[in-house]
């Protein structure tokens, strides 16, 4: 019997343990600086939000304010004559919540139909879903503007709040993919018990699809909360504005902006998105992975 010991001359660098350690170090040497770069814009935002104006323009720039001026948040919120942040935030919230519900309801119905119902013409309509999935709304904005003008909807929230009740191809696609994974046997069992499609959808599909629905709700929240193009286009009077438009109105003439106050309000505007992202992170990542790998 010869149990050979590993030769002493095999250097630590080449041993499995050593390789792994070097791999770790190299990986972290890239992961950490990149991570810092990714959060830097936020640090700049928050630190500017906490500075007095004269320190904002100080050189060299400091990430940690010398004196912290908490009142920037209140001053920013109330301090700008014609911009009413309370109204804007309320409008943003109202539109966002409405659009999440509208999207979930309309897309769940369509996704169930595409995933589980047999009908002539289904493939044709599903091809239409796929064809319009990547089409950004920006390309349709001119004629939509005319349409909403005809409806008399300009300067109201209707152009922003009505379309979400009529489906969104990307969400329909994602939900359909998820619905396809629900075992057929569950549906058959329910059918034997005499359940109709409405009941199957409500009592089997929706409870089993909570993660997928949460993903869509998060997507919808972020998309609508950050939406700038639509409100800028359809809304005129201050009373109906949403948060992103309010923020832009803060930009004074070039060079005259109260940067510390603007950053304070920008920080407040970003917080809801951050919270949603932190608490819904798991769903979020899974949802995007599904969209990519499965189509």
């Amino acid at each position: 019997m010869t149990t050979r010991k590993p030769k002493e001359s095999v250097s630590w660098r080449k041993s499995i343990k050593g390789r792994r350690a070097i791999g770790y170090i190299l990986t972290f040497a890239l992961l950490v600086p990149l991570g810092i770069a990714f959060v830097l814009p936020f640090i700049v935002m928050v630190s500017t939000a906490l500075k007095p104006l004269n320190q904002v323009f100080a050189f060299p720039p400091r990430l940690i304010p010398e004196t912290v001026q908490w009142e920037n948040f209140a001053d920013g919120w109330y301090g700008y004559g014609y911009v009413n942040f309370t109204t804007c935030t309320w409008n943003s919230l109202k539109i966002t919540v409405n659009n999440i519900i509208g999207n979930l309801v309309s897309c769940t119905l369509a996704a169930y139909a595409f995933a589980r119902l047999k009908a002539r013409g289904k493939n044709f309509f599903f091809a239409l879903v796929l064809a319009t999935m990547l089409l950004p709304n920006e390309a349709l904005v001119v004629p939509q503007y005319v349409l909403f003008n005809r409806f008399g909807w300009l300067d109201t929230h209707l152009p922003l709040m009505v379309p979400p009740w009529f489906g969104w191809p990307f969400f329909i696609f994602l939900l359909r993919q998820f619905f396809l994974t629900i075992p057929e046997e569950l549906v058959d069992a329910a059918k034997i018990d005499g359940a109709g499609h409405a009941r199957i959808l409500l009592q089997i599909f929706i409870p089993l699809s909570k993660p997928a629905l949460a993903t869509l709700a998060i997507f919808a929240f972020i998309g609508n909360w950050n939406n700038f193009f639509g409100p800028l286009l359809y809304l005129r009077t201050p009373d109906v504005q949403t948060l992103p438009v309010c923020l832009v109105q803060y930009q004074g003439a070039y060079g005259n902006t109260d940067w510390h106050l603007m950053m304070a309000v920008a920080t407040i505007a970003v917080i809801p998105v951050l919270l949603i992202f932190i608490f819904g992170q798991r769903y979020f990542v899974e949802g995007i992975a599904t969209s990519g790998v499965k189509g």
């Binding site: 990714f38 936020f42 935002m45 950050n226 700038f228 992103p244 920008a266 920080t267 992202f277």
Partner: peptide
């Protein structure tokens, strides 16, 4: 790290453009 790298994407909007 995955969360950190994703962060700027969700906050992309007017607020961050201003920053």
């Amino acid at each position: 790290f995955r969360a950190v790298y994703y962060l700027p994407t969700v906050t992309a909007g007017v607020a961050v453009a201003l920053v």
